[in-house]
């Protein structure tokens, strides 16, 4: 096979991959700018342009409030899970105690349970704590959901940090908390940003808990709000609104990823190459 053939095949493959991964988003954006009868036009190219959907989602329901709820839930989940995970990973990575390996494996296997399996149990817990239909009632389950992953990643990262660094700090007279705060945290920023961002995305997009543990539209997060959008009549599916809302809530995530992109790459490879 000559070079030309090879490069033709290569770029064909690239185009196919790009189309498959980007098309759904592209189609959502195109649809979000259509309205009325145009919505049922199967053309893949933009045929009309109206921004009405982007305004109507805020008029017909408390979508701004939904976004605010999502921001509050996702941010709290990130902060809470990072605080717990950093302290937990210090213990799991640095302190020898009986059952450490077992505990780590348990944490990992807990994260493999499908969400549905713990749904009813979690529901009872939330009810008994009186958190049903409230934001804390979403923050706690989401934190629980994201913690195994966060703890696991940070523990792996913390294990990679040289032991001498900690010992040098001990000789300098640092307490465990000082070591975590002054020595480990600054070195773990890339890993924290990576896991924090993934936790944020997870909480932002989480649907099942948000659907089950809320009742009224005022405490719903974005994914549920979008799914439960209804049209003017029960026979109408407001595709234009749904697509506009979806595009709108994806933007912050994309911006976040772009801002922290370099940190993420550094975080993902940090275990491989020690600086």
């Amino acid at each position: 096979m000559n070079r030309q053939m090879k490069s033709i095949l290569f770029y064909t493959l690239v185009v196919v991959v790009v189309i498959f991964s980007v098309f759904p988003f592209y189609y959502a954006i195109v649809t979000s700018f259509r309205s009325g009868q145009e919505l049922f036009n199967p053309s893949v190219f933009p045929t009309s342009f109206t921004t009405g959907n982007y305004f109507s989602i805020f008029k017909e329901q408390p979508f701004g409030l939904n976004i605010l709820n999502s921001v509050i839930v996702a941010t709290s989940v990130v902060i809470l899970s990072l605080i717990i995970a950093v302290t937990a990973s210090y213990a799991l990575a640095r302190i020898h105690f009986r059952g450490r390996g077992l505990l780590l494996m348990t944490i990992l296997s807990v994260s493999m349970f499908p969400q549905v399996a713990i749904l009813s149990g979690m529901y009872e817990l939330i009810r008994s704590m009186g958190l049903y239909n409230s934001l804390p009632g979403l923050i706690i389950p989401n934190t629980v959901l994201t913690l195994p992953f966060t703890v696991w990643v940070l523990t792996t990262f913390m294990k990679e940090l040289p032991k001498e660094l900690e010992e040098a700090a001990v000789v300098d007279g640092a307490s465990p908390l000082t070591i975590v705060r002054r020595i480990f945290l600054p070195l773990m920023w890339p890993a924290m940003v990576t896991t924090g961002l993934l936790a944020f995305i997870g909480a932002w997009n989480e649907f099942l808990f948000a659907l089950t543990f809320t009742l009224s539209n005022e405490v719903r997060t974005v994914p549920v709000a979008i799914a439960l959008m209804s049209g003017a009549t029960e026979y109408e599916l407001p595709w234009g609104n749904i697509m506009a809302a979806s595009v709108l809530v994806t933007v912050p995530i994309v911006v976040l990823v772009l801002v922290f992109q370099r940190k993420i790459v550094a975080g993902l490879t940090a275990g491989a190459v020690k600086g």
Binding site: E164, L165, E167, V171, D172, G173, P186, L187
Partner: peptide, 20 residues
């Protein structure tokens, strides 16, 4: 006693400087 209370100082093979 802890290393600090023993008033010792140690130089490590890998230097163990705080990178940040």
């Amino acid at each position: 006693r802890s290393p600090k209370e023993r008033k010792i100082a140690m130089v490590f093979q890998s230097y163990a400087l705080y990178p940040h």
